[in-house]
Design a protein around this nucleic acid. Structure first.
Length: 104
DNA sequence: CGAGTGACCGCAA
DNA sequence: ATTGCGGCCACTC
């Protein structure tokens, strides 16, 4: 493991591996990054990290859209629906089906 | 350099 | 069943 790299780099790498139509969770990304207890940091990276990454594919543990997404949850839901992810009430319908688990 | 903040998660009352 | 609180690590100002 490249412990030399910042936690943020690992999260970005994992996020970059999430294809369209798939979504991942903060806890899973944090766990894959090596710090399952740093789920909050993943959200922080999304805000201060690489803006080119598809952060709209990031959802909470319940499959619900984030609470501080730029533009609001409606914007995120719009992007997800645009990629083929059906969301209802700002919650992914087939969250378990669309859930994507990247790997290093 | 120090302190505060954060798009979360889990448990407790 | 619902609500509230703390904890955890990393990043920015």
């Amino acid at each position: 493991m490249d412990v030399n790299k910042s936690f943020r780099l690992r999260v970005e790498e994992l996020m970059a591996q999430v294809p369209g139509g798939r979504v991942t969770t903060y806890g899973d990304l944090a766990g894959l990054a090596g710090q399952a207890s740093a789920s909050r940091i993943v959200g922080g990276i999304a805000h201060y990290g690489n803006p080119d990454l598809p952060w709209h594919r990031l959802v909470n543990r319940f499959g619900g859209l984030a609470n501080g997404f730029p533009g609001g949850r409606e914007a995120q839901a719009q992007l997800l629906a645009q990629e083929g992810v059906a969301c209802t009430n700002y919650i992914i319908d087939d969250f378990e089906e669309c859930r994507w688990i990247p790997s290093l």
